[in-house]
Design a protein around this nucleic acid. Structure first.
Lengths: 105, 105
DNA sequence: GAAGTTAGTTACTTTATGTAAGTAAGTATA
DNA sequence: TATACTTACTTACATAAAGTAACTAACTTC
């Protein structure tokens, strides 16, 4: 019997990144902190799911939510250090996609 | 107005990798070609979803399905070149997970 | 011939995602 | 002062994806 039992840290990382939209949200925030509607229109995600994802990513320590007490209040989302450290992963995917993905269909 | 319109190749790569289970299936096949039930018990996926994923990954040119006409017939799944080229991505995720993911909860 | 293995499929339930409309606080416009 | 608009969400409802469990067909071993 073979029981490789994939490393739980790796599995957790995979489940984080393979949550639909999460990788794109992180990728989007690599270009700097952004507001809710900015992210929403940039990647075409529904408000509901974006709200869920941001909460989740914040909970995982990947995203930071900052309330700027201007009037009206501004809420900015940005990456934490943990979040920024995912840049190398996203860049790998990016360069893989350029080599191996054909745009059609 | 800001319309970054994420690169479609990148988006496609992301949607491939963020299909639930796909990354784990590919990761599992990095250690060599394997049979249906082997993959299934290694990563704990249901037969139904594994069947779906393998079809999908085969369709995307990432996985190869080989029928070995022994008796009884053996069906082996392995990575194509495109599939193996994802190793660098998976390794990046792996090393990120070691640095940044804590195993608990 | 009874039971087990392999590679799935089918039917049904639960969970996740999408869509659209609504809300509360504030701003700008007439 | 009312009307419309923006931001950052939430709520209700519909659809799609995933999980569970049982089933099948071909073959093997006991």
């Amino acid at each position: 019997m073979k029981q490789p039992t994939i490393c739980p840290k790796f599995e957790k990382a995979i489940s984080l990144l393979s949550q639909r939209w999460s990788a794109l949200v992180i990728y989007q925030l690599l270009s700097g902190s952004q507001r809710f509607t900015e992210i929403q229109s940039a990647i075409g995600i529904s408000g509901k799911v974006l709200s869920d994802r941001l909460k989740d990513l914040e909970h995982q320590g990947v995203v930071k939510r900052v309330v700027i007490p201007e009037t009206p209040v501004i809420i900015e989302y940005s990456l934490t250090e943990k979040g920024r450290s995912l840049e190398s992963v996203l860049r790998e995917i990016e360069s893989w996609s350029q080599l191996w993905v054909n745009a059609e269909a």
